[in-house]
Simulated assay, not measured.
Amino acid sequence: MTHDDIDQLQRIIARELEVQPGADIRDEIQRRQAFLIDQLHTTGQHCLVLGISGGVDSTSAGLLAQRAVEAARERLPEARFIAMRLPYGEQQDDDDARQALDAIQPDECLTVNIKPASDAMLEALEQAGLEFRDQAHRDFVMGNIKARQRMIAQYAVAGAQGGLVIGTDQAAEAVMGFYTKHGDGACDLVPLAGLTKGQVRDMAAQLGAPDTLVNKVPTADLESLRPQLSDEEALGVSYAAIDRFLTGESVAPEDAERIIATWRRTAHKRAMPRTP
């Protein structure tokens, strides 16, 4: 792939994901908070629902959501934010999730252990005859089951309480398709859309998140055989390189080609279902 090819694709991808390299984070906080408020008013719903993992993305989205519902109460007194803790058994970085909740101070917090439901689903599939290549393959599929069980719980709460589910996707994850389709990729509102990972960190800091969460090494923590596997190890490229790619800066050719190949391979995650 030539330098010109990479340069052209950088522009296409950044435009597709609505990346804004020079955005003022304070302005973005206000704009995205207003977006959440507007969605409550226009949809007739009165609460926002979000799973809090203890990572910088969910912390940022949670801080935005709580601020939004507090401002929305001027016209919608019943507006509230419901944070959800969705551990699979015991979460290894549970202290980080508690720190996030302490910073967010949500109106309500529900804790739902997804382990029984996730285990039951995998057991039922295997009893039906589903086989895996090996234990690593089984563990990977189970990771996606966990992600989808978390979204089942969030939508159940939203359905019961008249709410909208918030997703935590941002541009660095979107370009890599680094989320589970119909799992953490399923949501009603995506307030962090278009932001690079660095911009999300800046937003978290501006909103008052503790430094330990702002600078935390990101991990999806879905695989039991590789607990706390960092996103960057799983992706094979650093978030710094992804951010530079998205903002049109020069990156190592091997990083650019990995990002572009992954963007192409995961296109189905960013698209509506195909039709004849």
Rank of each mutant, 00 (worst) to 15 (best):
M121F: 14
L122W: 01
E123K: 04
L125N: 06
E126H: 06
E126D: 10
Q127L: 13
A128Y: 06
G129I: 11
F132Q: 11
D134R: 02
D134C: 02
Q135F: 07
A136W: 05
H137A: 15
H137W: 00
R138F: 01
R138P: 02
D139T: 01
F140P: 00
F140L: 14
V141K: 00
V141S: 00
M142K: 12
G143W: 03
G143N: 04
I145D: 08
I145C: 04
K146L: 06
K146C: 08
K146D: 08
A147C: 11
A147S: 14
R148Q: 07
R150F: 05
R150A: 07
R150S: 05
R150V: 07
R150P: 07
M151L: 06
I152Y: 15
A153C: 15
A153P: 01
A156C: 10
A156M: 14
V157W: 11
A158S: 13
G159P: 03
A160K: 12
Q161S: 12
Q161M: 13
G162M: 02
G162L: 02
L164M: 10
V165N: 00
I166H: 04
T168W: 10
Q170N: 15
A172Y: 03
A174W: 02
V175T: 08
V175E: 03
M176D: 03
M176F: 06
M176R: 06
G177I: 07
F178R: 09
Y179T: 05
K181V: 09
H182D: 13
G183M: 06
D184L: 05
C187T: 13
D188I: 02
L189G: 04
P191D: 01
L192H: 07
G194Q: 03
T196M: 09
K197F: 10
K197Y: 10
G198S: 08
Q199A: 05
Q199S: 11
V200K: 11
D202I: 00
M203V: 08
M203Q: 10
A205Q: 15
L207V: 14
G208H: 11
G208P: 13
G208Y: 12
G208N: 12
A209M: 14
A209L: 12
P210M: 11
P210I: 11
L213R: 10
V217K: 12
T219N: 15
D221S: 04
L222G: 03
L222W: 02
L222T: 05
L222S: 04
E223H: 13
S224M: 13
R226Q: 14
R226C: 03
P227C: 05
Q228L: 15
L229G: 02
S230I: 07
D231V: 11
D231N: 09
D231L: 08
D231H: 08
D231P: 05
A234K: 14
L235Y: 01
G236P: 04
S238Y: 01
Y239V: 04
Y239D: 03
A240N: 03
A240G: 09
A241W: 06
